[in-house]
Computed example of a mutant assay.
Amino acid sequence: MRFRMSAALASVVAAVVAAVPGPASAASGDIAPGAWEPAPQAGFELPAGARCDFAVRVEPIVDEVRKLTLSTYPDGSPKRELFTGALIDRVTNLETGATSTADASGTSLVDYATDGSMTWYVTGPVLLGFRENAGSLPKGLWIVDGQFRVEFTPTFEKTITMLHGTTHNVCTDVD
């Protein structure tokens, strides 16, 4: 079955993001269930050949990502969450020192399945890493921008279904 994010779904996601108040209680450290909360993105390093042909580091230089848990399973684990906020990553070729920035500030509605798989419904750019033969894009660090769905298997193989948008391998920017 092919996914098509309708304008109506995109409007719903945008309306939820706009209508739900920000983390007013976050300053005190008390985050009520169903409230926006920070969702910091961890930096990481990968060896040569894992995503790019060279060793690479990805680290956030702007990270205002927050999440809203929309529903949970009976055990309290998230079933559906919404992520949004500015995220700018610095991508560094660890062999040459070349750097580039990547805007990954998209909005994602994430559905988690009990088997460890998940589906993201995305508007805007996100940074996704692909291993060799492990998804619908070749090996690389990809900025995927537009409206699309990403299906993750429990082993993190990824299949992207684009409604419209672009893909760009950030590895080429620091090669």
Rank of each mutant, 00 (worst) to 15 (best):
E37M: 12
G43P: 02
Y121E: 11
P138G: 12
V56G: 02
M5R: 02
A42R: 14
T153P: 05
P154K: 08
Y121V: 09
G129Q: 08
A104C: 06
P138H: 06
L9Y: 01
E37P: 03
D111F: 14
V150H: 04
N133P: 02
A48D: 12
F156M: 14
L141P: 00
T92D: 01
S6C: 10
T123K: 06
N169G: 03
T101S: 03
A26I: 03
L87W: 02
P74S: 08
A24I: 11
V20E: 05
E132A: 14
I160H: 06
A24E: 11
A98T: 11
T155A: 12
A14Y: 05
V56K: 04
V174A: 04
T153Q: 11
V62R: 07
D30I: 15
T167F: 01
T69F: 00
K79D: 05
E81V: 05
T96Y: 09
A39Q: 11
R57P: 00
V16L: 10
P125S: 09
E81N: 03
D30Y: 15
V16N: 06
F152V: 00
A8I: 09
A113R: 15
W142C: 01
F130H: 00
A35I: 10
Q41H: 13
V150C: 13
G165R: 00
L141K: 01
H168T: 10
F148C: 07
P21W: 02
E95V: 07
S11Y: 10
E95D: 15
F83C: 06
A26C: 15
T153G: 08
G146S: 01
G140M: 11
T166P: 03
P40L: 12
V56L: 14
S108R: 06
L87S: 08
L70T: 00
A18S: 12
P33M: 12
T159Q: 08
D75E: 12
I143M: 01
S136T: 15
A86G: 12
V58H: 00
G97R: 07
I88E: 02
T167Q: 09
D175H: 13
G29M: 03
T69I: 08
A102H: 03
D175S: 15
P60W: 01
T153V: 04
G116F: 09
M118Y: 12
A27R: 10
A26R: 06
A104K: 03
W120Y: 15
W120I: 06
S6L: 14
G22F: 04
M162Y: 11
V17R: 05
A15I: 07
R149G: 04
D75K: 11
N93A: 10
